[in-house]
Computed example of a mutant assay.
Amino acid sequence: MTITHTKAMRKDNTLLAITHLSQLLHYVTGFGGFIVPLILWLASKNDVEGMDEHGKSIINFQLSMLLYILISIPAILLFGLGILSLIFVGILGFVLPIVNAVKAANGEAPSQFLTIRFIG
């Protein structure tokens, strides 16, 4: 006889939105924009409906932004193209978490704009 215990996942769009907005800690404190969403995702991915999808999206987005920054730094020597790309990454890194927080609050899937899929 096999007994399986299944735990019902709760729907918490507010926590999903807060997880997206926690990425903005980079702009406020200079750090934490990767660690805080990672902790929130790992702590509640099995308890909150949609957290696994949103958490993976956040981590993939943060890793993509880091990669774009690392590519942009040496590109500064190429006619200043790196400066333009750093400005673009800075704007994108500020706007997309807000857009995804609104989507999460409305129960929608996160936007994957310019996000490389590192974690499937």
Rank of each mutant, 00 (worst) to 15 (best):
28 V>G: 10
10 R>F: 10
89 V>G: 04
39 I>C: 03
52 D>W: 08
34 F>I: 14
65 M>D: 03
11 K>P: 01
80 G>N: 02
16 L>F: 07
46 N>R: 02
16 L>D: 09
2 T>I: 15
113 F>E: 12
52 D>T: 06
101 A>M: 04
54 H>W: 05
79 F>W: 12
78 L>R: 08
117 R>D: 14
21 L>V: 08
94 F>I: 13
97 P>H: 02
72 S>A: 01
30 G>I: 07
24 L>S: 01
19 T>M: 05
4 T>Y: 14
13 N>L: 05
74 P>M: 00
36 V>G: 12
64 S>F: 12
54 H>Q: 09
49 E>D: 03
91 I>A: 08
109 A>D: 13
87 I>S: 03
109 A>L: 09
118 F>E: 05
21 L>I: 13
39 I>Y: 05
98 I>P: 01
10 R>C: 12
54 H>M: 00
76 I>K: 07
71 I>L: 15
4 T>K: 15
11 K>D: 13
114 L>N: 09
29 T>A: 14
105 A>C: 08
49 E>C: 03
118 F>L: 01
16 L>Q: 00
107 G>R: 00
107 G>I: 00
37 P>E: 07
30 G>C: 10
67 L>H: 05
6 T>W: 14
48 V>Q: 09
90 G>L: 12
44 S>K: 15
80 G>H: 05
112 Q>P: 14
5 H>R: 14
53 E>H: 04
20 H>P: 02
104 A>G: 05
22 S>M: 09
14 T>H: 10
94 F>K: 08
64 S>D: 08
36 V>H: 10
101 A>G: 09
80 G>D: 02
31 F>T: 14
42 L>G: 01
60 N>E: 07
5 H>F: 15
77 L>V: 00
2 T>L: 13
43 A>I: 00
34 F>M: 13
85 S>Y: 14
4 T>M: 14
105 A>E: 10
6 T>Q: 15
100 N>F: 01
70 L>T: 11
29 T>V: 15
58 I>P: 01
9 M>S: 15
61 F>G: 13
94 F>C: 09
15 L>G: 08
115 T>I: 12
39 I>D: 06
17 A>M: 01
86 L>T: 07
95 V>T: 01
8 A>M: 13
119 I>F: 13
76 I>V: 15
33 G>Y: 06
52 D>L: 02
120 G>Q: 14
47 D>F: 02
120 G>N: 14
119 I>T: 04
83 I>V: 11
61 F>N: 12
82 G>M: 07
74 P>I: 08
116 I>F: 12
96 L>G: 09
120 G>V: 07
105 A>T: 01
62 Q>Y: 11
32 G>V: 07
118 F>H: 04
112 Q>M: 11
41 W>V: 04
14 T>Y: 12
92 L>E: 13
69 I>K: 11
25 L>G: 02
47 D>M: 09
17 A>H: 03
84 L>E: 07
12 D>K: 05
78 L>W: 11
52 D>C: 08
82 G>S: 06
30 G>H: 00
15 L>I: 04
64 S>T: 03
95 V>L: 04
111 S>M: 06
22 S>K: 07
86 L>W: 00
71 I>S: 05
45 K>M: 04
52 D>A: 01
69 I>N: 10
60 N>P: 01
102 V>D: 00
103 K>C: 00
7 K>R: 11
